[in-house]
Nucleic acid binder design. Sequence first.
DNA 1: CTTGCTGGTTTGCTCAACAATATGACCCGC
DNA 2: GCGGGTCATATTGTTGAGCAAACCAGCAAG
Lengths: 236, 236
Amino acid sequence: MASPITGLGATIHRQSVTEQAVAALREAILSGRIAPGTPLREAALAAELGLSRNTVREAARLLSGEGLVRHQMNRGIVVATITAADVSDIYAAREATEKAGAQALAQHRDPVAYQQLADLADQIEAAFSRGDVAAVLDGDRRFHATLVAAAGSPRLCRFHARLQQEQRLVLALAERSSRELGRTADDHRELLDALRGSPALATAQLTAHLQAGAAELQRLRTLLAQRAGTQAPDDG
Amino acid sequence: MASPITGLGATIHRQSVTEQAVAALREAILSGRIAPGTPLREAALAAELGLSRNTVREAARLLSGEGLVRHQMNRGIVVATITAADVSDIYAAREATEKAGAQALAQHRDPVAYQQLADLADQIEAAFSRGDVAAVLDGDRRFHATLVAAAGSPRLCRFHARLQQEQRLVLALAERSSRELGRTADDHRELLDALRGSPALATAQLTAHLQAGAAELQRLRTLLAQRAGTQAPDDG
DNA sequence: CTTGCTGGTTTGCTCAACAATATGACCCGC
DNA sequence: GCGGGTCATATTGTTGAGCAAACCAGCAAG
């Protein structure tokens, strides 16, 4: 049963039109080109993307499975909005999953995982020092994703990726006009050191790191909501 | 701005045809009436459910978001199958989320949560002693769901519910011919006692409980796969 | 200021159709 | 018999039109 050819990493992937529509919409939402709360008119989208309304509806169902979009009976599709409670929730869930990663890492002490984390910490610091906000955010996401990956559970990784994606929903608007971001100092190095130490220290530092992030995001969300002017800061 | 009427808890919920189709399919899959690996023909389903093929496709996309069904380009929809690796993964992910619940519980020591858990433990024991396998399984699910709920994170709860649902996919076939199940002794009482104790004890006992469950499910999965006769026990 | 109507807009869903792809049968040279 | 082709068929991917029901805003009437 040995496969005759190995190392064919280049997996062929044909994309259906629906998948392309999903990708396009996801990109548009996460980049902030479509603001949270915006209603998505099926006919308009179909025209814009150059495809049928039915296909748009399928794409929307997929996106709703990702939590980027919400359906309201007979009222259509809206880009998901993140409330203050959601931010807390996202960070609570992230803490749970990342703690699992930290604990696994504290057990098996996989050197390549540590190396990946160290590299990412370097990248983040470099991006931070040259003021590249987008690169800092991307590095941060990958750092934490790598941490979760240390747990070795695909489902946990996917869940965490989804949480990060929802989180990006808040940042979306800010990432373009990146004035508000990047004020916090980069403490991933500190976190990495703690991860190299005792499990208790690692989880404690992780909790602190995430709580700081949550507070920062909460602050930013309030700011953006106020600027948008339409909704109360604590309830969407 | 005080609302004139309060306490209208009875939320009205209209179900679209698509949602009904999702519910019907989910029920059919989880109850084992449609076995894992079964290809779902769109036309046949549309005829069976008495609705349009497009609506079936939308329902399938939603189910694929739940992980109950998988899409293969130009090849259609198949009921998801759970491999041995999946079982390990599901339990690893469950452990991460339930540990979060246990830890939260160890902190706030919410008495009503403890009461709910105790009640569920009672129910499980009662069902166990009268040999009601389905009730034992249901009680088990609710026990662990309640534990996760103690963490107070809706997203964590939903994730856990999804894991339990995927797990049911394996049990589905067995729940009907419930010969294989219910052999393991009921140790939820023990787990509950540990949850009342120190955090370290609680997480240790939880890990043991889940690992036993994983082993049991792994055994059952192999058994069912062999009985089905078509697939190797370790790879679907 | 609330109630009820009214017309336009949008969704939920259906139906019919067509191209592209997968699947299996059949046939063939060896 | 077996690997390799060709062809027919089934099924999916996608489209486009179309209709009933639900929603929304505005306006008239009490």
